[in-house]
């Protein structure tokens, strides 16, 4: 790899004119990737919409089975983590490396809380026999609902198939984000980032905000209406 010319910052690749140009190119590449992510999730949102249009009453009954308090807390937690990422970027832009590390760690904490609540939700459902698709076999009592009343509702398994696929793939994105943030924390400790160079944090931030936006739509669609 060619070394940057004398007087050029170490992060600058030789095929870019300036740091700004390199930053803008990376950012646009990230936006293009985010579009593919949006289209990945839009397939699931379209499936949700089609089945909801066909069986609206099933989806309303099913949303009563989901705990809006847990979903709501998770929404606030994820919004909080989006805030800490945005604030962390503002910190490093002003040269505050310690502030960046604290905010990245807070983001990781929020993500861990989110996954913890998701674990509680999933395990509660599995105990009540709420599995996706053909394995749907509700038993016992779930959040005060007698699951026997739900065994014969047609198309209810379909709702939970959609629920598990959408929240599952979203949760996978949260896990991936946690991995990347861990890597960013390590690099921050090493002093890799400065007001002149924080591209990986900016791009990971964009990814994280998109994961947040997906949840902003999933929460009302699955839990509330």
């Amino acid at each position: 790899m060619a070394q940057p010319a004398a007087g050029q910052p170490a992060h600058l690749k030789h095929y870019f004119v300036s740091s700004d140009q390199q930053f803008d190119a990376a950012k646009m590449g990230m936006w293009l990737f985010l579009i593919t992510e949006i289209l990945l999730f839009s397939g699931m949102f379209v499936a949700y919409t089609v089945y909801r249009v066909w069986h609206p009453e099933v989806f309303e009954a099913a949303s009563d089975l989901l705990d809006w308090k847990l979903g709501g807390i998770n929404t606030l937690v994820l919004l909080g983590s989006s805030f800490t990422v945005a604030y962390g970027i503002q910190r490093i832009q002003r040269g505050d490396r310690k502030g960046l590390i604290i905010n990245l760690l807070l983001t990781l904490l929020c993500a861990a809380i989110f996954m913890g609540i998701k674990y509680v939700e999933y395990s509660g459902k599995f105990e009540a026999g709420i599995f996706p698709g053909g394995n749907f076999a509700p038993v016992g009592d779930y959040h005060g609902h007698d699951m026997a009343n739900y065994a014969d509702i047609l198309f209810l398994p379909q709702f939970f198939s959609i629920y598990f696929v959408m929240t599952g793939i979203h949760g996978f994105h949260v896990l991936v984000g946690m991995g990347v943030f861990t890597w960013l924390v390590i690099r921050s400790f090493k002093g890799d980032f400065s007001p002149e160079y924080y591209t990986p944090i900016e791009l990971t931030g964009l990814y994280w905000h998109l994961v947040d936006i997906i949840w902003i739509f999933l929460f009302p669609l699955l839990y509330l209406i």
Binding site: S82, A86, H209, D212, F217, P220
Partner: peptide, 19 residues
């Protein structure tokens, strides 16, 4: 209404957090 609120929230995140 739920979709309107969600879209507003998404617009805030895209406009300001994603800048």
């Amino acid at each position: 209404l739920a979709m309107l609120i969600a879209t507003t929230k998404a617009a805030l995140v895209v406009g300001f957090f994603m800048a």
